[in-house]
């Protein structure tokens, strides 16, 4: 069967983009038992539909997922390591947000 096109062009006509491995997308899978979506890894794809298909073929080959999200990697805004202290430390000294902070009489089941 033909390995050559009938009228070969070199793929670099004015409208063609340069060769690449395509943009990167982040993949999030929801496991079958209703947990939240979790980051699984990344795939390369040219469009959202292709990213979904690739994510399905790459990350859900063993029935790992019932739902897939794909997001262009460039669209993700992440906290930076420099944020680490001011962002998260204030959450570490609010013991009243945790149930263990509150005492109940011995032998009583609260819930």
């Amino acid at each position: 069967m033909p390995d050559q096109p009938t009228s070969p062009t070199n793929g670099t006509d004015a409208t063609s983009p340069a060769d690449s491995q395509w943009p990167l997308w982040e993949v999030f899978l929801q496991p079958p038992k209703g947990e939240a979506h979790e980051h699984a890894g990344s795939v390369h794809a040219v469009s959202a539909e292709q990213a979904l298909q690739n994510a399905r073929d790459v990350y859900a080959r063993r029935g790992e997922a019932v739902s897939i999200w794909v997001v262009p990697s460039a669209s993700i805004t992440a906290s930076t390591p420099d944020d680490m202290g001011p962002f998260f430390d204030p959450g570490n000294d609010k013991p009243y947000r945790h149930p263990q902070f509150y005492k109940v009489p011995r032998g009583v089941r609260v819930f």
Binding site: A18, D19, V46, S47, Q50
Partner: peptide, 15 residues
């Protein structure tokens, strides 16, 4: 595979 990779990118750009 080059023509395939380039074609996919070109199609996505058109869309």
């Amino acid at each position: 595979g080059e023509w395939v990779r380039v074609a996919a990118a070109a199609y996505a750009a058109k869309q």
